[in-house]
Each structure stands twice: as C-alpha cells, then as structure tokens.
Amino acid sequence: MSQILHAVNQRTQLAGRNRMELLLFHMGRSQRYGINVFKVREVIPAPKLSRVPNSHPVARGIAHIRGQTIPVVDLSMAIGGAPLDVEGGGYVIVTEYNRSVQGFLVGGVDRIVNMKWEDVLPPPSQGSGGTYLTAIARLDGQMVQIIDVEKVLAELNAAGGLDPRQIEGGADEALAGADDWHVLVADDSVIARRQVVHTVEDLGLQCTAVRDGQEALELLQTWAEEEGSPLERLLMVISDVEMPRMDGYTLTSRIRDDQRLAGLNVLLHSSLSGVFNEKMVERVGADDFLSKFRSNELAEKLEARLQTVSAG
C-alpha cells in the first residue's frame, strides 16, 4: 500500500501526452474498477466513520483526515450495488472533484496502471442514461470499468447527500445576439455534459455536444470542409480534460496544429483543479481553464467571449 500512496503523488507528468494512469480497485468482488489518479489525493485504510443523522444512505459517514472533515461515500451502494462491510476492512480513496474533497469507500485497492487514452473506450450506449460508467478498458484479459464519479456526486448532491453548492442552476437569461453563435462541448460524463449544455443553451447559444476529444476533432475537421457549417460561427470549444480515446490537452494541441482550426477559442473544463492544470493550459495553447462545476462562472466566460467577438 505504501507504494501505491507514493505513486499517487508522482504521476502528473503524463498529462498532455494523451496518457492516463488509473488507480484500480474493487468492491469486494472480482470486477475491477478504475479512477483517474489525477483525481486522487491519497488512499487510506477505512477509518472509523461518524454517522450524520438523516444523511443519505450512500453517505456512510464523515471522517477526520489530516485536519479536514470529509464525507465518505459507499461507492458500491452509489452505483447500485450492495453496501460494503466497513467492519471488515476496506479502504477510502480520498479525491478532489469540482473543488470539493470526499472519500469513496471501496473493498480494496490493487495497483496503478499506465494507459493510453486511445485504449480507453466509451462504454456501450445506454439509452436510459442509467449507466455509471464513463469509459471501459481491457487489462490483463479483464474489462476494467471506469466509474462516472461526477454522476455519482451529482445524484447525491441533488438528493441533499453532500454539498448542495456543487449543483447550480443554469444562466438567468439569454444574451443579446447569442443565437447567432455556436458552441461545441466535449465531455465523457453524461451529467457534466448535460450541465454544460444546459448553461450554454440557457444563454441562447446554439450547442453541439460530443463524448470525447476524438469525436470533437473529427467533427471540427468535417465542419472545416463544409461551407456554411457551424465552424464559421463557432464561439468556443468547451472540452473536458480527462476523456477516453483523446483527452482535452491532446485535442487542444491538435486544434492548434491544424491551420483551419488554429484560431478557435478553447476552454478546458475539468473536475481537476489547481495550478497544475493552469500550467498545462499554457503548455498546450488553450485560451482558458475552468474547474467544474459552477454554471455562473461558465456563463461569465461565455458572455465575455461573446462580448469580445461582437466588439471585433
């Protein structure tokens, strides 16, 4: 376990190379799950949890970790499985998403693996939207399921289970002249994609949404060949950073390398926060970075961009 804890703190150099590292874990059964190491602060043996009265059943309690009180979520229950046996051991993966820190209770932690984003694929289409997977990957002959943690947190927040400040309404009103402009959104999380699209459309902007960077790049390249396509009135590309097949950093670099697309305004939008991401934005040539999810801040970015192009 000490090797895993050490590795979690040493893995930021892969960003921008269309590579990722997954922390593999299980829920007490053979199925393996994964979470992006960049979202992980640390992994600890499951501590004693203090139950909060009237809390959501999935929120198993709170723990005091390094001077901070954080909620601990039973990840098995959160994705529709059986409750984990806290008394039987287990581990807590302490993560930072959307500017909040929370722990996920899991049955056990295995190891960290280095993968190419192009080898991480979107999950099979689910028309009902009920899947908790954001991607899948094959490793050692076994399918690893990468959980859509943002969906888990959004459902808990909506039910009052964690911090309600994480979910906000959309923009208050449409902007003048916004309906002449288009926005392309790339995000592998169903919930995150829906939140971004909701904010964009509330402002009166036209919007197209895709599931990953590869799909976004292919669409932009197709638009570049078509007269009268949305590319001619594309206000902004809003891209998640961590996506299967092609991450947001690589997407930005590919856009900058294509003369037809190089002038596009790119906003990277991620649940990862911190100085590291700001430096990566500069490195790959993105125009801006925004941590998920504050709809009012996203609306401000869109409004400022619209004012810029209108003045020009």
Results as ranks from 00 to 15, higher is better:
residue 4 I to V: 15
residue 6 H to G: 02
residue 10 Q to E: 12
residue 11 R to L: 14
residue 12 T to Q: 10
residue 14 L to A: 07
residue 14 L to D: 04
residue 25 F to M: 03
residue 25 F to Y: 12
residue 27 M to C: 01
residue 28 G to K: 08
residue 36 N to C: 13
residue 36 N to I: 09
residue 44 I to F: 02
residue 45 P to L: 00
residue 47 P to Q: 02
residue 48 K to G: 10
residue 50 S to H: 04
residue 51 R to Y: 07
residue 52 V to G: 02
residue 55 S to N: 14
residue 56 H to I: 02
residue 60 R to G: 02
residue 63 A to L: 04
residue 66 R to Q: 09
residue 67 G to S: 01
residue 72 V to D: 00
residue 74 D to M: 05
residue 75 L to K: 03
residue 75 L to T: 01
residue 75 L to F: 05
residue 78 A to W: 09
residue 79 I to C: 03
residue 85 D to G: 02
residue 86 V to H: 11
residue 89 G to P: 03
residue 91 Y to C: 10
residue 96 E to F: 06
residue 97 Y to V: 06
residue 98 N to G: 09
residue 99 R to W: 04
residue 100 S to F: 13
residue 102 Q to S: 13
residue 103 G to R: 08
residue 109 V to D: 09
residue 113 V to E: 11
residue 116 K to V: 03
residue 119 D to K: 10
residue 122 P to E: 00
residue 136 I to C: 04
residue 140 D to V: 04
residue 144 V to E: 08
residue 145 Q to W: 12
residue 145 Q to T: 10
residue 155 E to Q: 15
residue 164 P to K: 12
residue 168 E to M: 14
residue 171 A to E: 05
residue 171 A to P: 07
residue 172 D to A: 14
residue 174 A to W: 04
residue 178 A to V: 10
residue 186 A to G: 07
residue 187 D to K: 13
residue 188 D to L: 06
residue 192 A to L: 09
residue 201 E to R: 14
residue 212 D to V: 01
residue 214 Q to I: 02
residue 223 W to M: 06
residue 224 A to D: 04
residue 229 S to G: 02
residue 233 R to V: 01
residue 234 L to Y: 07
residue 237 V to D: 00
residue 244 P to V: 01
residue 245 R to C: 00
residue 248 G to L: 11
residue 251 L to K: 01
residue 252 T to R: 07
residue 254 R to S: 12
residue 257 D to S: 15
residue 257 D to T: 04
residue 259 Q to L: 14
residue 259 Q to F: 06
residue 264 L to S: 02
residue 266 V to G: 05
residue 268 L to I: 13
residue 268 L to H: 09
residue 280 M to W: 10
residue 282 E to T: 11
residue 288 D to K: 15
residue 293 F to T: 08
residue 293 F to W: 06
residue 293 F to K: 09
residue 295 S to Q: 15
residue 296 N to C: 06
residue 297 E to H: 11
residue 298 L to C: 12
residue 301 K to A: 09
residue 303 E to W: 00
residue 304 A to D: 08
residue 306 L to W: 08
